[in-house]
Every structure is written in C-alpha cells, then in structure tokens.
Write a protein that binds this DNA or RNA. Structure first.
Lengths: 403, 403
DNA sequence: ATCCGGTACTTGAACGATCCAATCGTGCCT
DNA sequence: AGGCACGATTGGATCGTTCAAGTACCGGAT
C-alpha cells in the first residue's frame, strides 16, 4: 500500500535520476557499467518491476498478443490447439510478450473483436489460425496496418512454396530450435518508432507459418509403397478445403511417382468417423471391371477418418470366413490422442515449432519493424526462420501398429 | 496518429466535461438520462474505447485474469483444457475481463510466475487447475491476498460437500445457465476500494468449482446395475490421488448400496491404455475360490483406462471359441474425443459451466469485494452460484454403444 | 582561450484515464 | 426571501513510465 516500488524509488535508492533507471532497463548501453550495476542492484534489492500499464500508456505498446480460441474443431482443433497455445505462450514469454485469448464465431465477429482489443487494450499483434481462401480477417488487419501472423499459409497467393529446412530428404531434424536468437537482452533497445506499419507489411503477403500437409501424406504414402503396397487408397474431405486439397495432393503425387493409377482409389467425405468407415468399406469392397481388387492400404486426411477406416479394415480382414486376409494398413493425420490411444500411425504436426515460428515472425514485426537491412544476411545457421517471412514446416510420421 | 479519440474528445463533442463522460461509463446512475444519451451517442459516433492502460494506471486493476496452460496432461488435459479455456474466455468477456495464459512447470516456478504477473501486469486474479493436497500455490496466493479460484475443490478441508443444484435425483438440467446475472450493466459502479483483500478471503477456504466425480462414477455404476449387471468392476488410479479416490468412491458407494461385495472387483493402475487393458484382462479372467466369475461390466477412472478395458472386453467376448459370450459393458470418464470416436459411454464434465462458475466466483471477489451482506440471501433462483463460494457440479453420463 | 563533439546523466512534460474536492444550478421547505 | 439539501457538473491533481530537451564535464582541435 504505502510502498509500491516505482522507478523513482529505485532512482532514489541508486542515487540517479528516473531516466537513468529507465535507460538501464531499456537501453543499457547508454549507461556507464559502474552506474548500471548500481542500478541493477537497487532493482534487485527493492524487487522492482516495471509497470506495464504506465509503460503502455507512454509507448502505446502492450506487449500482448492475441489468439482466438474457438468453440471446438475449427481449423485446428481439440488437443491440437492446446499444444499450439502452450507453444505460443512459452515462446512469447522470454521476449516479454504474453498471450491473451479471445473468442468469436465467424469472421465478422472476429473483426469486431479486433476493434475492441486494439481500441481498449492496445494489442500489439495477432496470431490467426484456420485461415481460408477469401479470408476477410487478413485483409482487415493488413489494411489497418496491424501486425499479424497466420498459422496456415496464405491460400490466395499460390506461388512461392518456401521450405523451412534444408535438404528434402525424409530424414528430419526432430528438434529444430526455431529461435535461439531472442534469449539475449531483456528487452530490445529503444527505437524511434515511426509508426509506419504499412511499410512493414509491404510486398502484398503477410508472414505465415504452416505445416506441409502434402509432404506428410506423401511420406505416409511412400512408406506404404515401400512396404510393398501398390494400390494405396485415400479418404479425404470434400473438395473446397484448401488444406484438404493439399493433403490429397501429397498422396496423389506419391502414387503418380510410383506409376500407380489413381482411379477408383479415392473417396471424399465429411470429417466424421462413421463417414470414414463407410468410405473405407466402400473402397475395400471395390472390384472394378477388370477384376482389380480394392486398395490394400489407406491414407486418410484426418485421424477421425482413419479411425473409421481402421474399423472397416479390421472387419474386412477377419470377415471372409476365418482365414485372416493380409492386414489393411491405415495412416491418419494429426496424431491426436485418439491415434495414440488406438495405435494408429499418423502424421504429426510440429506444433511447438510452429508456435515458436509464429511468435518469432510476429516479434520480428513488432520489435524489429524497420530493420530491412538485416534481412540481407542469408542462412547463417541462425535457425529456421533466419530472414524469412514464411515458414513451411515438415510434419513427422509417427509409426505405430496400423501401418 | 493525429486523432486518437480520448475521453476529452468525447467530452468536447458532447459538450460536457471529462468526468461526466467517465461517469456515464462507470456510474451511469449519476448522470441525467438526457445527458447520458448524448454522451453515449458521442461515444458511438467517435468510436471511443477507454484506454485500459490509463484506467489501470489509476485504478490498479487490469481486468485481466490468468490461467496456466501446462505442457500436456497435467491435471486436466488435452481437449478438456481447451474447452475449459474457451468457457473461461467466453464467460469473462461480458464482464469486461480477458484471459491471459502463462506457463510453469511445478508449483515453485508457478509462484515465480505469479510474482511477475502481479508485479508487472497487475493481474486481477487467477484460475488454478489441477489442485492437489498440500498445494503451495493456494497458500501463497491466499497469504498475499490475491483473488483466485480453483477448478478442483480444496482437498485440505474435507467437510462441507455443497451441491450446486437442487434435488439429488438422477435427472439433471442439461443446461444450467450458470450466471445469467452479469449481462446487465457494462461495468460495475465505482466503489471505494479499500484494498483489504485478506478480508475477502476470510474463513480459511478459498472459492472453488469442481465436478462431482463420485456422483459420475456412481451414476455410471447404477446404470450398469439397472441393466442387470451385478458384479461391476472398477479400474482406477493408484491410491494417493484425491481425484482418483473420489471417483472410486462413487463406484464403491453404488455397489454397497446394492449390496454387492466389492472384493476382487477392483484394480489400481497407472493411467495408460495398456495398463487398462492388462487390468481388464486380469479382472475378467478372475474366478475366485468359490467359483464366482469376474465382473460383467467395468467402470473406469478415465477414458484411457476404459479404452484399454474395451479392447480386453472385445477380445474376451469373442475368444472362448465362437459363441459370443454376453458383452462386457465399459464406461469411461471425461468424455474425451477418444470416447466419442470409439463409441465409449463416458462421464462428461460440464466444462463450460465449470468455467463460467470460476469466472463468476472470481468476479464476485474482484468487483463485489466487500459485499458480505449479500451472501445472506439463500437460493433465490438467481442461478447456480447464487451466494455460494463453492460450486460442485454434476457431470453427465453420455451413453454410447459400450454400456 | 574558445569551440566542438561526445558521453553520462538530469529535468520537465506528456500519455489518458480516475479520484477528489469544490462549484453550480435547481427545487423545496419554512 | 433565505436557507438548505441534493444532484449534476467542473477543474485540478495524480498514477508510473518514456520522450525530448537540457546541463555538466572531458579531451582534443582550432
């Protein structure tokens, strides 16, 4: 009550002015080492913490970034989301940023939420998930000059698929340490913020992080091919979903590369277990006019579909009359707890790295706004997102019993 | 840039003083309706939003509440957590509060996080999850006089099991609308905050919200008994977990009430699918000295265990030699996506209501601090958390194929 | 001796809201 | 008419920080 520790308290204790204390915190290089240490000691002794509110009022920056948390199953869903959120929170903390949540149903409501968050709380930036073609949110934010990053690539601008890592081999660095850079100083030095955010977002494309779904389904398909399967089927979502098309494409590419004819190997259904089961039964029972049998393995666009397929496969394998026919392999997507529970092989998204990538890109926009010069240095081993505005991460195939 | 809309802008536009505008926002009853409307119109026209930073600096209140998001599977996990988070965010918004996330591994690290959050961001309150006996966090917060609510009852003080709803019958209101109260005014009227938080937490017990696990397992067990099963087994966690003991107790109580002997019907294992399967195989194969067969149905402390049990049950049901023995029923706990996917009957926690309850209790601490008088009125049909400091919610049994 | 550039630090003035005490009607009662 | 109470409104001070400008000092070139 009586003794809130302010910057003035510290200043008095260290026998310097307030501004010098401020400099020790925000621009240490301006202060003589001797003085600096004296001030730091005072801060330590008194247990001083800068008041974010006061700082924010002066600078207009809140050091808060916002993420939407949908009701459920929107874009990235279920337990996928909370791993992502955890990754965000953990990556943001060392840079002095915190994550606040907001909800909204539909793009319009979300834009209203932006108004509120920006107006009242001076939010510094946004992380969007579940982007889709024709997304009103990205346009709105870009037009307003609000810094943001999307988890999910920009589906508008198709070209320029930039890869995060180096080589294209199936071996992958499991832990890529996306941003070892920002551990250094406590805060970035004071900069003359000229408030020209539209310059930051120049170039027409916003920064994004995404997981290469096609690579995942391709890896899954190739694994099945390598195991001797030829006719590898695919159960995906109805056309129209960009993510869905991406995942399908990986499967198709792998089969084309192996010279397998795709016809009759594919079903497109809604993302539910029962639908997946029906589609699988349908596919597995197929015998075309030439007597070619149905697929002997299935790649699915989600774990839900895969779970359905797995049921159908089990039934199919034992049904004929006692003699177990060769087992139908199934591979899912997202490595949800369901997959872990039932032993389903699945493509796992590197969510922690994706989250760290989002934070790194966003913080670059926020703290390093106008350092265009710095972007010139190329891949000095600094970490994945070296000077990039986009980051396409490779998923990982988690192999279990099912394929 | 040039024209940020401040309270002075609005005042000028509406031809009143700043204070009047402030009163319209914070204590509308002090302002003549005519003036009030004029000011509101000006706010609307100009798109004015109060600057939280400025308000916070003056009042010391940030209108931010914090929730920890653990790495995974800690206390409440997976998709359970993000439903809870969504509920919190949604319930907090109409009262003008926002949810910020933080991470910490272990109680000590979490306490360090409190220091930081309180010192720098002036956080108003905390929602803790996964409380356990001897929790250092609650002590620390209580000693500091920081408002907080736990999701998870206070395991220290065993007595006083207060029920949220009314009657104790198995029928339940599916949607209980936990807090229809706070939709009214935009903000609470200005109060003389005397900053005596220790008074708020007087009485030795902190507010909490919890789900009545025993009620859930009891309902599950009773359902199985009603379906004709007599020997209903239980697969739970090793002794030591308060939540685990609670869930076990519901099963035990139901069997005792039905006059069934519990011996040999129970296994206690770690919370993994394989362990659940092993335990179920073990239980189902049991034939004791008197020739009594093993259980014909299983209640489990989690969906993981139940999934294992379900596998064992399927195998058990078909193994003997062709003739399918009567199906073994299995019921899980938490209604995770896994349960939904495999058709497992499971006890579902009312997470949205729990979250709303947490927010309601916390906001009562924050906004209504010293209204001790108000607590006297008893259950006036105000909604669940009428004047209560504790809220024990009933779970719901979601019936699917498995039992 | 004067001027200069730079470093190290200090001082006054904002940021935008709320709180406090004082003021200004306005109606009502005696 | 005067006094009083009450409701509505006002100006000034304040929260803790950063920004912009200013002071003091020192070594070296003019």
């Amino acid at each position: 009550m009586a003794g809130r520790v302010t910057i003035a308290t510290v200043a008095h204790h260290a026998r310097v002015s307030r501004q010098t204390v401020s400099n020790v915190i925000n621009a240490p290089q301006l202060v003589r080492p001797e003085t600096r240490e004296r001030v730091r000691a005072a801060i330590e002794v008194l247990g001083y913490r800068v008041s974010q509110a006061a700082r924010q009022m002066r600078t207009g920056r809140s050091r808060l970034i916002a993420v939407r948390i949908g009701p459920a199953g929107d874009g990235i869903n279920g337990s996928v989301l909370d791993r992502f959120l955890h990754g965000l929170t953990e990556a943001a903390a060392p840079a002095g940023y915190r994550v606040v949540l907001y909800t909204a149903t539909g793009d319009d409501a979300e834009i209203a939420a932006y108004e509120e968050l920006l107006g009242a709380h001076d939010l510094d930036g946004f992380v969007l998930t579940g982007t889709h073609p024709g997304d009103a949110r990205t346009d709105w934010l870009a037009r307003r000059g609000v810094p943001f990053v999307t988890f999910g690539r920009n589906w508008e601008a198709q070209p320029e698929p930039v890869f995060g890592g180096g080589e294209h081999s199936p071996t992958q660095h499991s832990k890529a340490q996306p941003e070892p850079a920002f551990g250094g100083g406590e805060h970035s030095p004071t900069l003359n913020r000229e408030a020209q955010p539209e310059a930051v977002l120049g170039g027409g494309e916003h920064p994004w992080v995404d997981v290469d779904g096609a690579w995942g389904t391709r890896a899954a398909t190739e694994r099945l091919l390598a195991a001797g399967h030829r006719r590898v089927g695919f159960i995906g979502w109805p056309p129209g979903s960009a993510v869905g098309e991406d995942r399908r494409e990986g499967w198709a590419a792998a089969l084309r590369a192996a010279g397998v004819d795709l016809s009759g190997l594919e079903r497109r259904v809604d993302d539910r277990v029962a639908e997946g089961e029906r589609a699988a039964v349908d596919l597995l029972g197929t015998v075309d006019l030439l007597g070619t049998a149905g697929p002997s393995a299935l790649v699915c666009a989600s774990d839900s579909l895969a779970l359905g397929a797995l049921r159908a496969a089990t039934a199919h394998g034992t049904a004929p009359g006692g003699i177990a026919s060769p087992r139908i392999a199934v591979i899912g997507f997202d490595d949800t707890p369901v997959a872990q529970a039932v032993g389903l092989t699945s493509v796992s998204q590197p969510l922690t790295e994706a989250a760290a990538g989002c934070v790194a890109l966003l913080i670059r926009l926020l703290d390093g706004g106008d350092h265009d010069g710095d972007l010139d240095r190329e891949g000095e081993g600094e970490g994945d997102s070296g000077g990039r505005r986009h980051l396409l991460l490779r998923p990982r195939l988690v192999v279990r019993d099912s394929g």
